[in-house]
């Protein structure tokens, strides 16, 4: 464990909690892409199957259970409890254009052709593009609630911190995983446009609104 991975995990946890609390307290999922949340639930489900097969640490196991639990709770709030507030007209990204290519790539480019490894690889590739429906929805509505921008900022920062974690681990532990690194770089790049808007607007107290 190093400071980049720990702060990355805490940033990821913060993002997940911020979103869950925002929906729960405001009793509304307006502006939130349910499709992205389904993709995240799929990412955690396919990545954390090793919960059943291997124990790494109490931290690792408990965080995985929290992530999976919150992901499904968020999907439940969006599609069941507060379904009336779900903005389906703007959440129109064609996720099959993400899942199918990512699924194919996971079969073609992986470290080991075993079910667990292919599912892990699928989850790594999927996570790198899972935020696209949410970013697409914001570009369609032309704006985002400030709390949603904080959620996105924490979510984007987490994987950027993981990039530093991988530099650290390569240098000190001689470990690197090219699949995770390339996907992590792609994932972080997808947030750059949002980071720019967040830093130049939201941090100056303005609302995040895109030229629609």
């Amino acid at each position: 464990m190093n400071v980049f991975r720990l702060t990355g995990d805490l940033s990821h946890l913060a993002a997940i909690i911020i979103l869950l609390l925002k929906i729960w307290k405001s009793r509304s999922c307006a502006g939130i892409s349910g499709k992205s949340q389904i993709l995240f639930a799929l990412v955690f489900t396919t990545r954390y199957l090793d919960l059943l097969t291997s124990f790494i640490s109490l931290y690792n196991t408990s965080m995985k259970i929290i992530y999976v639990g919150c992901a499904y709770a968020t999907v439940y709030l969006i599609y069941a409890k507060f379904r009336a507030t779900y903005d389906g007209n703007h959440d129109t990204f064609r996720v099959e254009f993400l899942v199918v290519p990512v699924g194919g790539l996971a079969f073609l480019v992986n470290h080991d052709f075993s079910p667990l490894e292919i599912l892990w690889t699928f989850s790594i590739y999927l996570e790198s593009v899972a935020i696209l429906p949410q970013l697409f929805m914001i570009s369609k509505t032309g704006e985002a609630e400030t709390i949603t921008t904080h959620y996105l900022f924490c979510l984007g920062v987490y994987r950027a911190l993981y990039l530093f974690n991988w530099i650290w681990r390569f240098y000190f532990e001689g470990f690197f995983d090219m699949i995770a690194i390339v996907a992590g770089v792609v994932q972080t790049i997808l947030y750059c446009d949002f980071f720019y808007l967040y830093i130049t607007k939201v941090l100056k107290g303005k609302k995040l609104s895109l030229p629609a």
């Binding site: 991975r5 090793d50 690792n60 470990f175 690197f176 995983d177």
Partner: peptide
């Protein structure tokens, strides 16, 4: 070897 991912990350 450099490559084996211990899968100890979240």
């Amino acid at each position: 070897d450099l490559h084996i991912n211990p899968k100890d990350e979240l």
